[in-house]
């Protein structure tokens, strides 16, 4: 049963991360009044990139060559240890912190790879990406502490179990969950915060010099990153729908539905907002989640103190 569920999670992660990216592109096209690409388009793009020969820049260093593999492996580990609702064979104590750490490591290695390609566009993209990444660290510490204050645990399964028993916690955690959504939008570089991969200003972001299989791996790690961030939110929201951890199959289904709803919200935000300026994006991405999570933390502390 254990190994079956591990294999199931790996298959699910790969299938769903491509589907989520495809649904995002399709929805964005539909909102703009276009027919849009097929939902499997990211999968076709991925396969095509794998079949192409790579063309390397003249002065490519080893950082440039190995960065996509390293970034993909961090993102893959993060995606696999994220439990599918109550089905989490690879979950362990403190995995909330480890998942965020792995995501940061994945983004940093991809950015460093772009920086090592010595293209001026990817240099700008890398500096913007790192600035956003650093700006989002303070709110991150606040989300994790508000989750800990609310539920007394730092592993996702423990958090979900506590949320099942005390639904009232959602009232206190609501600002944190909204802040986590803003964080997910910022971290995946989607529209109001698409500063590092702004197509019209700096072309394709840090990935500009990559080609063939290396680009495919970088793209896949971006898809996995999106899946992990939305999946964490879906994990937090599943206890609202499924009230008992015994219902594993039903919880996975509910988790998938919540994932899809969150992706729809993200695509709508992606298509109705324009891109912010780099300094504005940093301000919004730093201040909005910070205020929301401070609100959560304070209300939780007051609640604890009153009891």
């Amino acid at each position: 049963m254990y190994w079956e569920s591990v294999v199931f999670i790996i298959v699910y992660v790969f299938a769903v991360c491509f589907l989520l990216a495809g649904i995002r592109r399709k929805l964005k096209a539909r909102i703009q009044g276009r027919v849009g690409p097929p939902v499997l388009q990211p999968f076709y793009d991925f396969l095509k990139l794998l079949t192409k020969n790579a063309s390397l820049p003249k002065n490519a260093s080893w950082v440039y060559i190995y960065a996509p593999v390293i970034g993909l492996s961090f993102a893959f580990v993060a995606a696999v240890i994220t439990p599918l609702a109550y089905l989490g064979p690879l979950a362990f104590a403190g995995d909330v912190i480890v998942i965020f750490l792995l995501l940061a490591a994945s983004s940093v290695s991809l950015i460093l790879g772009g920086l090592a390609s010595s293209n001026p566009y990817s240099g700008i993209a890398a500096s913007r990406g790192l600035i956003l990444l650093i700006g989002m660290e303070v709110p991150l510490a606040l989300f994790v502490s508000s989750l800990y204050l609310a539920t007394g645990s730092l592993d996702i399964e423990g958090i979900m179990e506590e949320l099942v028993h005390q639904r009232i916690l959602y009232v206190y955690l609501a600002p944190t969950l909204v802040a986590l959504m803003v964080y997910a939008i910022g971290k995946t570089w989607t529209n109001p915060f698409s500063i590092p991969n702004a197509e019209t200003e700096i072309m394709e972001g840090p990935m500009i010099e990559y080609s063939g299989g290396m680009l495919a791996m970088a793209e896949l790690s971006h898809f996995l990153e999106l899946y992990v961030l939305v999946g964490l939110l879906a994990d937090m929201l599943t206890p609202l729908v499924i009230s008992d951890p015994v219902f594993k199959v039903a919880s996975v289904l509910a988790y998938t539905v919540i994932l899809l709803v969150l992706i729809v919200v993200m695509s709508v935000i992606d298509s109705i907002f324009a891109r912010l300026r780099a300094d504005q994006a940093l301000k919004v991405l730093f201040i909005l989640p910070t205020i929301l999570s401070i609100f959560s933390v304070l209300s939780l502390i007051i609640m604890r103190w009153m009891l």
């Binding site: 096209a29 063309s55 197509e199 500009i208 990559y210 080609s211 680009l215």
Partner: peptide
């Protein structure tokens, strides 16, 4: 709507077919 055929305009010749 070129994207319905999977056609995408890219910013780098290294990505292009």
């Amino acid at each position: 709507d070129a994207e319905r055929f999977g056609v995408k305009l890219v910013g780098s010749p290294r990505h292009a077919d």
